[in-house]
Simulated assay, not measured.
Amino acid sequence: MVLIRYLLPVVACLLIGACSSVLRWTPEAHVVVSGETVYSIAFRYGIDQRDLIGWNKLSASGLIFEGQHLRLTAPDRYIPVQSPAQTTGSGKSTPATRRAPLPGQSPAVPVTWTWPVNGPVIAGFATTARTQSGVHITGKRGQSVHAAASGEVVYAGNGLPGYGQLLIIKHTSNYLSAYGHNQKLVVGEGDRVTGGQLIAKMGEGLNQRPLLHFEIRRSGKPVNPLQYLPKR
């Protein structure tokens, strides 16, 4: 009975579909398999793709090869690349800052977000262990899924467990969005898309209910999409 009680949350998670893929325990290394990109690997482990590139001394493009071993933790004495100095309205430059915001600081949203699909939200975002890293929006099978903002498709495939056919779009160096459980992808890696552009057709979650799993990530970490999407 005790074992069943502990297994129930796992079963419920699978029935909902697309639970958080951010692992609570991160291994020290990852072996690249066919179809993976720096972005999909960073997404899987909930780390910033820029850190993954820096830790492994990759080229700026993030080129990786099948069978390559990538470290998933910072080496000793590693100093993250800092953001360049910014110019204020007075023309004075402000000191460079780290990518992560200071505690209690609300990061400015550098992109204009739109809803990726029309439909009610049936599962919300949560930050506790093994819960939603995004939101579920229901609709009809084959319904159009649109880019939530302009950017570049940096991953298109089904290599991440729990997401089905998945698209990841890079909007800025800080922000990514992800679209899971698609029936069909109509854009591919390297494509440039504009906000509102058709990118996929809605599929089904693991419970066979039509839905889109949608995420926004800032510096590799999931954030609540409802705090970024326009009110409706």
Rank of each mutant, 00 (worst) to 15 (best):
W55I: 04
L70Q: 07
Q197H: 07
V187K: 12
E204Q: 06
Q143C: 08
I64W: 02
G35F: 09
P27H: 04
C19W: 02
S144M: 02
T114W: 03
D48V: 00
G180D: 09
P116A: 03
A18I: 06
P75C: 01
A123T: 07
Q49F: 15
G195H: 04
P95D: 06
P84L: 14
W115D: 06
S93W: 10
I216Q: 12
I168P: 10
P80G: 07
S219K: 04
T131D: 11
G91F: 09
E28Q: 12
Y155R: 03
G89H: 06
R218L: 14
T87Q: 15
Y45M: 02
L70N: 07
V186T: 15
R5W: 14
L15R: 15
L167E: 06
E215W: 03
W25K: 11
L7W: 13
S93Y: 13
G139T: 06
S93L: 13
R209N: 06
P80E: 02
L72S: 09
Y78A: 06
A60V: 08
V38E: 01
Q208F: 12
S20F: 03
R218M: 11
V38I: 15
T87E: 13
Y39T: 05
V193Q: 06
R5M: 09
G134Q: 02
V135H: 02
A12L: 14
G89L: 13
L72Q: 07
S34Q: 14
P80D: 04
V2H: 10
T112M: 12
Y78R: 04
V109Y: 00
A60L: 11
W113G: 07
M1H: 11
G119W: 06
G134E: 01
L14C: 08
L206S: 15
T88A: 10
K184D: 04
Q105T: 08
T172S: 10
S150D: 09
A108F: 12
R130I: 02
T194V: 09
A178H: 10
Y228A: 10
S21R: 13
R50F: 13
S150I: 02
Y175I: 12
Q227A: 12
S144R: 09
F125C: 08
S173P: 01
N182F: 13
V10H: 14
V186F: 10
T37D: 10
G205H: 01
L198D: 06
K184L: 13
Q183R: 15
H181Y: 15
H69Y: 02
S150F: 09
V154L: 05
A42M: 07
P210G: 00
Y228G: 00
G164T: 04
S173F: 01
P222K: 14
D76M: 05
H171D: 01
Y78H: 12
R24T: 11
S20A: 01
V193Y: 10
H136L: 08
L226T: 14
V223H: 04
I41D: 07
A148P: 03
P210T: 01
S59H: 14
A126D: 15
